[in-house]
Design a protein around this nucleic acid. Structure first.
Lengths: 219, 219
DNA sequence: TTTGTATTTTCAGGTGGCTGTCAGGAAAGC
DNA sequence: GCTTTCCTGACAGCCACCTGAAAATACAAA
């Protein structure tokens, strides 16, 4: 695989570069948005690691621009702990995953592997889940040719279940997926979104495991 | 499962305790090495979560002592980012895994499940018990393709038998497995849950050993 | 900036499932 | 027979969960 790393912090950049090279991937490392754009013009990348705070602009704008141009290259966002709202904007703008700094390198490797697996071979995979057709890159779902629109939060929740099919996910696990560690939610937000997801796309697939959490069946 | 958490930070301890309880395990939380030793003397634990920086000493010394005594209980170490050398010492001293603070709760859950699985000597999480198929990580049981739903307590009881196949477990042992310290049960709760378990999945496998306890046969 | 719309979050009322307890009866052992 | 131990149906209280609707917030267009 060939990766593009956009990260202005010297230390972190070096570490990541080293790690990824060690795993047998090719990686180009740039430290600004303008350089990133130059790279994207000339080369095809299989995956992009994108820091949001950059000297010449915000990474989200870059991401939006990329997606607008129809590019479906998967993007993993690297964000600092205190930029939660950015993270949500990022997912909205078409990011595939995110990592909160500081993160474990093993965690990074795992995510990279996961994203790579998801996209292995075909550039725009459409997954079938029961009667649902799911376009991972475009955050787009349809059933029987009818498109189903999910909001950012709804998609994030749905995604959590896709990533671990058949597993029971507790409410706090789901919270961790939707919100940053520490940004505690004190209401029944997860329940509400479960309810909304069911209304939009459930045909009995999203079941409650009382006292434990929720599980999505893919039959 | 029954876990021992050794962690002096109030906030983190509470969060972990909550999460693990939610997943249906029993957890005892102590904040010092001396308390930990007391617990280890009196009770059997399936897994131990060990912070290294503790008010009355270093967790590694505790770990070493435990291992020296021949105890094989799996241990997951919780370390801060700047204590990497400790981390290595920890693995040397006989830890099974480590987590760097701050960590994702879902990550913790995953590691716990992994260690528990490894410890049970069962890399493949799907166990066959007679006509039953049991997916340990997913808390999921089926017979002849029909799923059987267990409540949290029922599952916890069932789990106790899975972990010690063919062993006679006394009522007080089962109570210890289901409930944390202090929350003593004064009624025949265990009997009631045995009855409920039998109704849901027994085909003569769960037998009473009068005066001693119960045993589950795996044929 | 202001306005209008979509989304997110919170709140509150209602429902049903789970849990622990008890009591009466059955079974085992003496 | 009697005593002890175990089984199990029933039940009340609790708590997890569901969901409509309102309030707060974010976002886009004018």
């Amino acid at each position: 695989m060939r990766l593009l790393l956009v990260e202005d912090a010297e230390g972190l950049g070096e570490v990541i570069q080293e790690q990824i090279t060690e795993e047998g991937h090719a990686i180009d490392w740039v430290q600004s948005i303008s350089h990133a754009q130059a790279c994207l013009h000339t080369t095809h990348y299989d995956l992009m690691l994108l820091d949001l705070m950059l000297p010449d602009g915000n990474g989200i704008d870059l991401l939006k621009k990329i997606r607008k141009s129809g590019e479906t290259t998967p993007v993993i966002i690297l964000t600092a702990r205190d930029q939660i709202s950015d993270r949500i904007k990022g997912l909205n703008a078409g990011a595939d995953d995110y990592l909160v700094k500081p993160f474990d390198l093993s965690e990074l490797s795992a995510r990279i592997a996961a994203v790579a697996r998801r996209y292995a071979g075909n550039p725009n995979p459409i997954i079938k889940i029961g009667t649902l057709e799911v376009d991972l890159t475009r955050h787009f779902i349809s059933r029987d040719g009818v498109s189903i629109n999910l909001t950012a939060r709804e998609w994030a929740l749905f995604e959590a279940f896709i990533q671990r099919p058949g597993t029971v996910l507790s409410k706090s696990q789901l919270e961790d997926h939707l919100y940053a560690f520490g940004s505690e939610i004190e209401s029944n937000t997860i329940e509400v979104y479960i309810s909304r997801l069911r209304k939009k796309l459930d045909r009995g697939q999203l079941e409650t495991v009382r006292g434990l959490g929720y599980r999505m069946k893919f039959s």
